[in-house]
Every structure is written in C-alpha cells, then in structure tokens.
Amino acid sequence: MTTTAYLSIAAVLFTAGALGTLLRSSAAGRLIGVELMLAAATLTFAAAGAGFRELDGQVAALIVVAAGVAHAIVGSALIASLREPR
C-alpha cells in the first residue's frame, strides 16, 4: 500500500480525536480523544519512515507511544482521583 493510504487513515484518526477532545464534556472522553490523536501521530511517523525507507520514523513513533502511555496513566489517575468521594 502507498504511504498516502496510511496517512489518510492517520488523518481520519486525528480528526476523530480532535473532534472528540473538543466536543466531549467528560474527562474520560477527552482523554480518549487525545489518545486517538497520539495514535494518529504514531501512524504518521511510521508511515513516513516506511515511505522514506529510514528507521527514524519508527524511533519517533516509539517515543510518541511512550508519551501516550505516560499520558494515559497520568490522565486515568487524575480522573480516578476526581471521582473518588471525599
């Protein structure tokens, strides 16, 4: 498949994530929206790396994945602490 096809999928993911982040009112919904945007960035890096036949794209994608995991854990901890009755 061409790089453009993968970038199109990434564009769909990023658009859905951006709309979810902007339009959802719940914190969990916004967290999921940001996760979708990070997944789109990861796919873009991987597709670009494959398109240019360089390993740099995969390395950048791994960094984005690590940032996404940290973001998901911190975000879910914040949501859980907000939900906890005082």
């Binding site: 969990a28 996760e35 796919l43 790396g49 494959a50 994945v65 854990i73 879910s76």
Partner: peptide
Amino acid sequence: LYAGLAAPALAAVALALAVFVTLPLIVHL
C-alpha cells in the same frame, strides 16, 4: 497496520500496550 508497514517491533509494542495498558485502564475507569 504497523506490521503492514514493515515495523514488527512497533506492532509488537502497540499490541502489548493495547492489551496490558489500555484495556486495564479502561476497566479501571
């Protein structure tokens, strides 16, 4: 899709994170 991009290491990392990080967090929330 990562596996289709000839990035099996990235695919394995994404698979492991989806199974061992994202799903437990979803259940937790």
